[in-house]
């Protein structure tokens, strides 16, 4: 399985990841190499095997419905790139 430069650009857009034009080729090569590695998996029969998402078969613990967090806006927004009137600013959102 090999990828094309176009595939890489498409994935990069999906991940909103700017990559330099001159690096596209090396990413294409690296990713294709990784996919090559993965073909080993297809040689193993996994019919009827349950996918394993967590190391331990545990169930989700539930939290009591209580308000435990207080307003901490000033601290949180002190590290924000751009805020005004308590809002985070971003380039215009077009609906």
């Amino acid at each position: 399985m090999t990828l094309t430069a176009d595939d890489v650009k498409k994935i990069a857009y999906l991940a909103r990841l700017g990559i330099d034009q001159q690096d596209v080729e090396s990413y294409t090569k690296d990713l294709s190499g990784m996919l090559e590695l993965m073909t080993q998996m297809s040689e193993t029969n996994t019919d009827g095997v349950l996918p394993m998402a967590h190391p331990m078969d545990q169930s989700q613990r539930l939290r009591v419905d209580e308000v435990t967090e207080q307003d901490n806006r000033n601290n949180f927004q002190a590290i924000a790139p751009q805020v005004e009137e308590g809002l985070y600013l971003v380039p215009k959102v077009i609906e």
Partner: peptide, 10 residues
């Protein structure tokens, strides 16, 4: 979408 210098507030 009020105008914050052409930006949106979140």
């Amino acid at each position: 979408h009020e105008n914050f210098h052409g930006m949106s507030g979140i």
